[in-house]
Nucleic acid binder design. Structure first.
Lengths: 147, 147
DNA sequence: GTTATTTGTATCGTTCACGATGCAAATATA
DNA sequence: TATATTTGCATCGTGAACGATACAAATAAC
C-alpha cells in the first residue's frame, strides 16, 4: 500500500494549479481596474505582438480551444477592445483587430509585468533561477502538447 | 518602449497557466472513466489522507474558497462519493466523509499518479530536477499566499 | 463538376473559480 | 444577559475551460 503517491504534497499538478491560480489572482486588481480579466489580458498580449489575427491563430498561440476563445473575444468586442471582421481571403475566418482603446490599454497597463514580477520573487524564485523554471515548464508544456 | 516585458514568451504566469491546464488534461481520461473531475480528485486526495473533515479544512488545504468547494462537494455527494453531515460540536460545520465508494476509488485509481508522472518526464523535467521545481513552486505559492 | 473531407467558428451543456452577499451559529464585548 | 462581532457555509452572478456537436466555406477526391 503506497499511499505516498497519493499525498497532496507530492503532486506536481496541484502545485502548478495552485501557483497558477494565485499568480492570476495577483493580476486581478491590476486588470479589473481596466475592466479586463486575465485571459483577456493574454489575448491582448498576443494582439499587441501582432495585430489582426484570425481566431484560430490566437487560440493556438494561447494553447486554448476556439470554443473557449470565441465567447471571450465577443465579450472583448462588446467592451470595445477589439473588432471581429470576416476574413476577405477566407470567409470562414474571423479576423480580430485591436481598437484604439485596445492599443491604448498597453500604455495604461505599462507597469503590470514589473509589478507582478516583483510579487513572485522569493528565496527560491530569483532572477537567477527563473530561467531554470522557464526551461522546466517549457519542457513539460512541449511534452504534454505532443500527446 | 518596453515591449519585451509584454512578450508572451516572457510571461511566467502564462507558462504556469498552460502547464497546469495541460497537466490537468492529462488526468482527464483517467478520472472521467470513474466519473471524476480533477478538482474532485483533489478533494479525494485530501480525504484519503484524513477522512471526515469540515468544508473549511478541505478548502484551506486546497487553497480554494468555500464557495468553490461547496457546490463541488454537493456534486460528489449526489454521486455517492461523500456524505455531508452537520457537525455535532459546531452546528455551523458540515463534515464531509468518504462513502465506501469514495474509499474504494483509491484502489481503482491506484496507477493514476505513476501514469501522470511518466507523462511529464522530458529532458528538462527528470526525477533529479523535480525537487528543484517543487522548491520553486512552493516558494512562489507561499510568497503569493502571504499577500 | 459532384461528392467527400477538412477546416474555421460558433453553440450548448457542465463544471469550476471567485467576488459579493446573506444567514445562522458561535464567540466576544458591554 | 443583551448586543456586537466573528466564523462557517451557502447562494448568486459572471467568466472562463472544454467536450460534444453543428454548420458553412474551402479543399480534396472521384
Amino acid at each position: 500500500m503506497e499511499k505516498e503517491a497519493f499525498r497532496l504534497d507530492n503532486q506536481l499538478c496541484f502545485r502548478l494549479y495552485t501557483a497558477s491560480r494565485l499568480l492570476t489572482q495577483a493580476y486581478h486588481p491590476l486588470l479589473s481596474a481596466r475592466g479586463l480579466t486575465y485571459p483577456q489580458y493574454l489575448v491582448l498580449l498576443v494582439l499587441w505582438e501582432k495585430d489582426a489575427q484570425p481566431v484560430n491563430d490566437i487560440a493556438k498561440r494561447l494553447v486554448l480551444e476556439t470554443n473557449t476563445v470565441t465567447p471571450l473575444l465577443k465579450r472583448m468586442e462588446a467592451d470595445g477592445i477589439v473588432t471581429r471582421t470576416k476574413g476577405t481571403d477566407d470567409a470562414r475566418q474571423m479576423i480580430v483587430t485591436l481598437t484604439r482603446k485596445g492599443k491604448q490599454l498597453q500604455k495604461e497597463l505599462h507597469d503590470v509585468p514589473a509589478t507582478v514580477g516583483r510579487a513572485v520573487l522569493c528565496d527560491s524564485v530569483t532572477p537567477e533561477t527563473v530561467p531554470d523554471l522557464f526551461r522546466m515548464l517549457d519542457g513539460m508544456i512541449e511534452q504534454l502538447k505532443s500527446e
